[in-house]
Design a binder for these strands. Structure first.
Lengths: 190, 190
DNA sequence: GCAAACATTAACAGATCGGTACATCTTCGC
DNA sequence: GCGAAGATGTACCGATCTGTTAATGTTTGC
């Protein structure tokens, strides 16, 4: 299997797991939908869990690349980018096939704190916080990390409710809260 | 099977599904851990899905009863109760066996919008919004329902991050945001 | 005490689970 | 053209999945 076919397999598996869930999706279906045999999959991934980890690595890259780029496209300043995140989320919520956050779902299906899938899922969230904190610092906020963690809470809450309600409205509802955090209060320094 | 035994079965199943996940838990395990035979379970529930629905009904009652009572115990005013919700959540996050929100997980494992489990999971969130909106109205806020929806976003975001990070800190981080919504802004009417 | 009604159980279907053994096919050096 | 090496597909493994069948206990009315 070439590098390309391997990447394509991971990308196919991503789509199936995202649509169907992890435990609910069998490796036979992954093989069939990917157009490769199960044996070939197991040549490259020792277990289903390892395939899932590869899927999550791809998703982490894809999602952060998309979100951060979109934030930059929508706003010029760091402060504006943090707010624009919620507009980007709204686009995602309205897109065909939106089914919530893959990492939340992976963490929910693999709850054990020792599980590599559980740890890797949260690592994605930490990378998001890092980026938010960088932007918050650049915008001149004191305690940028605390602000970043609050923005993460807003983002995850909006994703969960949008997915459960099948309605993109939570994006703007969360944005309104973020505006008060970023623009409104007495305790921002710039 | 008596009414009591049936209720106890549902309560047992709740614990197992909450700890293990829905798809990852087989009916044989539910039967074994509940001390009843699988046949007896299927006498009362036609399918696994029906058992899950019964579990979610119980969880909805239990959780709302607990949360609303705790909010009342912790604060006297409607406004205070809305803030105290996050203190109650913090207690939950620190409790043994906390594993996130059962309805978020159910919704994640049964994603189809037509699925009764999916719909019932979101119905729980709507009942929470109703209660928040009642309190926000009693506190004199205009647009109480919009505020209630924002509080829901904060609550769900805090739960998701607390569960993923195995850390109760998001409760107070979300509370700080709620304080700005409830107390800080120019656009509250009382 | 006895029969009807109900609850419970072990054993079993048929399908599918994650994962593998082995035979076949392709590819490549030379 | 041909042999070695790796990729692929088929068919299978034991375990487990949801759900059922048929036999056994247990309660209850009278």
């Amino acid at each position: 299997m070439s590098r390309n076919k391997r990447d394509e397999l991971i990308r196919n598996a991503l789509g199936i797991f995202y649509r169907n869930g992890f435990h609910a999706t069998g490796m036979d279906l992954v093989a069939k939908e990917s157009g490769v045999s199960k044996t070939s999959i197991y040549k490259h991934f020792r277990t289903k869990d390892e395939l899932i980890l590869a899927v999550l690595r791809l998703r982490d890259e894809d999602f952060r690349n998309w979100l951060f780029r979109r934030m930059e496209e929508l706003a010029a300043t760091p402060q504006g980018q943090l707010l624009a995140m919620f507009d980007a989320l709204e686009e995602w919520f309205m897109a065909d096939g939106f089914q919530g956050c893959m990492f939340i779902k992976a963490s929910a299906e693999f709850q054990n704190a020792d599980d590599a899938i559980n740890r890797q899922s949260y690592a994605h969230k930490e990378l998001l916080v890092d980026h938010f904190a960088r932007l918050a610092g650049a915008a001149g906020h004191d305690a940028p990390r605390a602000l970043a963690r609050q923005l993460l809470i807003l983002k995850e809450g909006a994703i969960v409710i949008a997915a459960m309600s099948h309605d993109p409205a939570p994006a703007q509802e969360a944005r309104a809260i973020a505006e008060r955090l970023l623009l409104g209060g007495a305790d921002i320094s710039v």
